[in-house]
């Protein structure tokens, strides 16, 4: 379990302290205490505490069904809260849903673009949902479409756009109200690597504007690439929460050796150092170790080549959430 400095600590003294008229910036962009949600008696989110600072890029990482999306939906007022407190931009949810969503940009997991409209019409209609129209908004739409490289697609129908273009349009649409917090639910699932990198670049550009960004993902690379801090969530609980580099430093041995071959298991049983850990994934073995050279030499002496790499967030993730399949 992580010795976590960011979660839980200040929970109790924030209860009931909300005052909507209080001046000055909120301490947290998002503050979640003891959040709980159950479906048919089964807890899906089970006591989540989170404080996300203004301007922070924060990632919620977890296997399928871990509770990421449900947490996010409660944050947005799209799922009733069964227990605990949620404050977004200092406003309690779900009571503040209208006021909160006015200041939020949301990129949902599934495409909700309006197929009856063209690109530009989608932008205008969405702006109208915020009560925005007129020359200022037109200028903003031009700028946003420029920003996501869709300016030459203004008149295109939605079904004529590629998956990557649809995601970029969804992002541009979510920025129409100049949000203070941008929330993305698995923003790049289903995109090819080019489209994914393109979207990451656009998200990184948001940093300059000072927005807070919250995303869920199960791509480690995405979390490492974009997030200042990551919470790993599983079975509805946060099991670790820190900067990616610190998660790696604290939770996993620095090196990973990959050993193949049918007899690798028996081999490792003999050769493994006292502090090394070995884990089988399909027909290869991963050895987590602080001293890779010793083992590597031993294996080489036995005529076996192994591949060495640095441990990454994926290793932390697999260590904390287990290797078994989730459906």
């Amino acid at each position: 379990m992580a010795p976590d400095r960011d979660i839980g600590g200040t929970a109790t003294n924030r209860y009931g302290m909300h005052s909507p008229s209080a001046p000055g910036p909120a301490v947290s962009a998002i503050s979640i205490q003891q959040l709980y949600k159950a479906y048919d008696g089964l807890a899906v989110v089970d006591g989540v505490d989170l404080e996300i600072a203004p301007g922070e890029f924060f990632g919620l990482l977890g296997p399928n069904g871990a509770g990421k999306t449900t947490t996010l939906r409660m944050l947005l007022g799209m799922t009733p809260i069964d227990g605990g407190q949620v404050e977004v931009l200092g406003l309690p949810m779900p009571e503040g849903e209208r006021a909160v969503r006015e200041r939020l940009g949301i990129v949902p997991q599934f495409d909700t673009l309006d197929p009856d409209f063209t690109v530009i019409e989608n932008m205008r209609t969405y702006a109208a949902y915020f009560g925005l129209s007129g020359p200022t908004v037109e200028a903003r739409i031009d700028r946003l479409l420029e920003q996501v490289n869709l300016n030459d697609k203004r008149g295109a129908r939605i079904d004529a756009l590629s998956g990557g273009m649809k995601r970029r349009l969804t992002l541009a649409r979510a920025l129409i109200n100049e949000p203070e917090v941008v929330v993305l639910d698995e923003p790049t699932t289903g995109l090819d690597p080019q489209a994914r990198h393109h979207l990451w670049r656009q998200l990184r550009q948001l940093r300059a504007s000072g927005v807070t960004l919250v995303l869920t993902t199960h791509y480690m690379e995405e979390a490492e690439e974009l997030c200042d801090r990551i919470a790993i969530i599983d079975h509805g609980r946060i099991i670790a929460c820190d900067a990616p580099s610190r998660l790696i430093a604290e939770h996993i041995e620095p090196w990973v050796l990959t050993v193949g071959g049918a007899d690798a298991g028996q081999l490792l049983e003999r050769e493994l150092g006292p502090k090394d850990r070995a884990h089988q994934v399909a027909d290869t073995w991963l050895v987590y170790t602080a001293e890779p050279e010793r083992l590597r030499e031993r294996l080489r002496a036995l005529g076996r080549e192994s591949t060495l790499r640095e441990a990454d967030l994926e290793d932390v993730f697999l260590k904390l959430t287990g290797h078994e399949l989730r459906d």
Binding site: F110, D111, D114
Partner: peptide, 14 residues
């Protein structure tokens, strides 16, 4: 089919 309402629920609309 089109998730139009879900899209709207990401805005101040209830």
């Amino acid at each position: 089919e089109q998730n139009t309402w879900l899209g709207m629920l990401a805005t101040p609309l209830t």
